[in-house]
Simulated scan of single mutants.
Amino acid sequence: MRAIETDTIAPGIYRVETVIDEKLHGYHVLEGADGPIIVDPGVVDAPTTVYRPFLEAQGWSLEDVSLAVITHADADHHGGNRELREHAPGVTFAAHDADAPLMESVDRIMRERYGMFEADHDIGYDAATREWLDGMLGPDERIDLRLRGGERLALADRDLRVLHTPGHTRGHLALYDPEYDVVLGGDAIFGRGVFTVDGDSIQPPPYYRYPEYRDTIELLRTLSPEILSLTHYEVFEGDDVTAFVDESLAFASELDALALDLVDDRGTITLQEAIDAVVDRRGSYGLDVDLAYPLSGHLDAHVDRGTLERTTAADVVAWRRA
Rank of each mutant, 00 (worst) to 15 (best):
G167W: 12
H72D: 10
L299F: 08
M136D: 03
H72T: 02
R266D: 08
A68K: 09
V279K: 03
D45K: 12
L295R: 13
V241L: 08
V91T: 13
T71P: 00
T270E: 05
E118N: 02
P47G: 06
Y114W: 14
E151F: 09
R305Y: 08
S105Y: 11
F190L: 00
A94C: 01
A154M: 09
L223N: 06
D265T: 07
F117I: 01
R221W: 10
N81W: 03
T196M: 00
A277L: 09
V235F: 03
E56W: 01
R52D: 09
G186W: 10
T129G: 00
G12Y: 07
D45F: 14
I189G: 02
L102N: 06
Y27L: 10
T71F: 08
G149R: 12
G150M: 02
G115H: 07
I38V: 15
R310H: 02
F195H: 04
E131N: 14
G79Q: 08
D276T: 14
T268R: 13
A128S: 15
I189F: 01
I275K: 04
I269E: 06
H87E: 13
T49H: 07
R320E: 07
I217Q: 15
V245A: 11
L219Y: 10
E247N: 08
G124P: 04
P11C: 01
R282Y: 14
A257P: 01
V106Y: 07
G238L: 10
E247T: 04
G124N: 10
D64Q: 14
F244R: 13
D74F: 15
T169W: 12
I13T: 04
L155A: 01
